[in-house]
């Protein structure tokens, strides 16, 4: 059993939840089951892509941005956009497609 990794296991568990369990639910229970499915999808993508590489010293960077020391820094803007996109790949399937 080495070829079934965590992401794949979460994926089939989620498919089962959506196909066999959610249709039998209604109201609040259905809403909560859909939230569980969403959480499983995020966890599966996290397992698949690994942790997002965060900026080395986020506190110093945040302070420098606030102080105006990085105004107009196009490289930094690109880095931050890539960081947001990397986080989106894990958090949101629709965001990954859209941007």
């Amino acid at each position: 059993m080495t070829d079934l990794d965590g992401a794949a296991l979460l994926d089939i568990a989620r498919q089962t939840l959506l196909a066999d369990i959610v249709p039998a639910l209604s109201g609040d229970a259905r809403f909560k089951a859909l939230m569980v499915a969403n959480a499983m999808a995020i966890a599966a993508r996290q397992a698949q892509y690994g942790a997002v590489a965060e900026p080395a010293d986020a506190a110093a960077l945040a302070a420098a941005i606030r102080a105006g020391l990085r105004d107009g820094d196009k490289d930094l803007a690109q880095t931050l956009l890539e960081l947001a996109r990397a986080r989106c790949r894990i958090s949101s399937k629709t965001a990954e497609k859209a941007g």
Binding site: L81, A95, G99
Partner: peptide
């Protein structure tokens, strides 16, 4: 917990609107 996962999409919108 899931509300926290809305943030990356908002961050991407912020960067697209400001860079």
């Amino acid at each position: 917990a899931l509300t926290g996962h809305i943030v990356p999409e908002l961050e991407r919108d912020i960067m697209l609107a400001t860079s």
